[in-house]
Each structure stands twice: as structure tokens, then as C-alpha cells.
Amino acid sequence: MSNTGEMSYNSKVEGNVVLTRLDSAINWIRKNSIWPMPMGLACCAIELMAAASSRFDIARFGAEVMRFSPRQADLLIVAGTVTYKMALAVKRIYDQMPDPKWCIAMGACASSGGMYRSYAVLQGIDRLIPVDVYISGCPPRPEALLEGLMRLQRKIEKEHSTLALKQEPALAS
């Protein structure tokens, strides 16, 4: 747990009670159990698979539970070139994911269209859905994906989760 400064220790209730802010507790839980939805579109998907397999082992960061159903996922990893034909499907999948949800644009194509400046390619997935972390590279190495995941964890750590919970009905409408 990195937010140890926010915890306090009391010898009378040792082992039973931990004092913390609700925010940091929720965020701690969330950041260590990210369930990604691998939106494997092109070459980057192969590096995504490599990151999930033995050598790089994404399980070290609690994100090994790849869910192919958006309903069970909270991180959309857009790995590969998003074409206009595919764009609305990606948007649809993002919309189907339950809140809270995050998105990683993996690789140059998903971030900005990359080397495909052409009539068929959406110039960056951020034109359709909000992106939290952009990972550069064509394709990014699995290490870069893991670095992106850690950045996302750091971002989740700082979120005001309880505030968002209170505001949820308003946001949803």
C-alpha cells in the first residue's frame, strides 16, 4: 500500500481496525484489480498477448483477468488501428462498460492514427472516447504497456471516488 502516510496505527485494536479514508481504500481496491477488456484490433494486440503471457506476466499488476465482455471489464485497452468502419463498434463497447471505467490507447495508431494517414483510419481513438493513458510505440513493447498500466494505477490512486459515487445519479442522467 503506497498511501501509508494516510493510515494510522492503534495498538488497542491491532489487527482488527485500519483507519483510512474511504477514497484511498476504494482506490486501492480498484487499482489493484483492473479487469481489462482487450480491444485487440491489429499488431498491438500481439504485444498485448505477450504482456499477458509468461515472460511479462501482467498478473503482477492485478490486471490479468482479460474479459471479452465489456460488461465485466473496467479498462478498455484499445490495441491497434481503429478504422472508421470499426470506430462505432469500439465506441459501442466503451459505452457498454459499467462505471468506473478507464481507457488506454495502446500504440501510435490508437493514439493518433500513427503511420496510417489515410482515408480509412480514425486519427486517434480520443476523437470518440476519452482516453486516460496514451502509450507511444508502434507497437509499444510489453514493458511500455506495463508502464502505462502503472501510470493508470497512479491516476486511479488520486481519484475522488466517493465524490463520484455521490454524484453518480446526476452523471448517469
Binding site: R92, D126, P130, K155
Partner: peptide, 23 residues
Amino acid sequence: MSTLATKPSPSQNVRTIEVEHLD
């Protein structure tokens, strides 16, 4: 390497699309 970007608010940068017709 990776860069951290802030989430843009839905109204500004994100394009809204009517997807009902695309059912």
C-alpha cells in the same frame, strides 16, 4: 514512453454520436 493525459470532459473533445440507428 507513456504519457499521462487528463480525461477531457465529454462536452469538449468527445464527439457524441447517435448510435441508436446502428442497432
